[in-house]
Design a protein around this nucleic acid. Sequence first.
DNA 1: TTTAGTGTCATAATACACTATGACAGTATA
DNA 2: TATACTGTCATAGTGTATTATGACACTAAA
Lengths: 127, 127
Amino acid sequence: MEFNETKNIFLQIRDWVADQILQGKILTGEKIPSVRDLAVDMEVNRNTVMRSYALMEEEGIIENKRGIGFFVAADAKRNLLKRQKQTFLNDELPSILHQIEVLKLNSEDLQILIQTIQSNDHEIKPD
Amino acid sequence: MEFNETKNIFLQIRDWVADQILQGKILTGEKIPSVRDLAVDMEVNRNTVMRSYALMEEEGIIENKRGIGFFVAADAKRNLLKRQKQTFLNDELPSILHQIEVLKLNSEDLQILIQTIQSNDHEIKPD
DNA sequence: TTTAGTGTCATAATACACTATGACAGTATA
DNA sequence: TATACTGTCATAGTGTATTATGACACTAAA
């Protein structure tokens, strides 16, 4: 996998797994890739994946079954939605707004952004 | 200054100075704080500020006058605008769009964002 | 000329992310 | 029972951001 240089790898792995869950590519109760497998896939050390999984376990996103592996927790999706939404609105959005103001980006520059938002207006709210 | 834990300090200092310039709080040709002074102000080591300034010099944002200090380069503002705009649109926006899609954020959730963008529609484009 | 302010360079120490590797216990299956 | 998976822990090494400090050359002003 291609990692962003500015963000810690173990956080990017967490983000990737969280994304898989939010997108429904890994379902509730399903087993996620083993620490060793994912490490090989992502060309990263076991311990780094282990750190991501430990973090997600703390966050209640995944659960461990001894000797078997990690599984998507029952309310992982709702948990993640709430957590990510809050992080986005509270931590990321202010910085985005600030940049838009300073760079004077208008509707034309951000046409795609507005379209993307509006295409969600008729979406059914996820659980 | 309060630093974000996830981003390198010398990059955050660069961002801060760049912001001061874009906002017109430091004018073209004006002297920026000395390496030592800013280090004290931000409660950071001299070398860390030095690294930020060296980076900005490479980027053509500031210039050094020996024995005197660093000054805002002639075309710093235009340079910065171009650079930041490109970084935002190419590197940050895709990730933002992705989050909006996955989290199904709509016009209501992002009301402020849309307002901010639209308030730039009647702005005169900066140089 | 002396003094105080600039940046610059070199060195050492600390902290932490990441890697590399080995060993061990639990679980499922042949 | 033997084998091959799981996660887990410990240890050691590497790279790099950051700190701490000292020394030096340049410039401006007293």
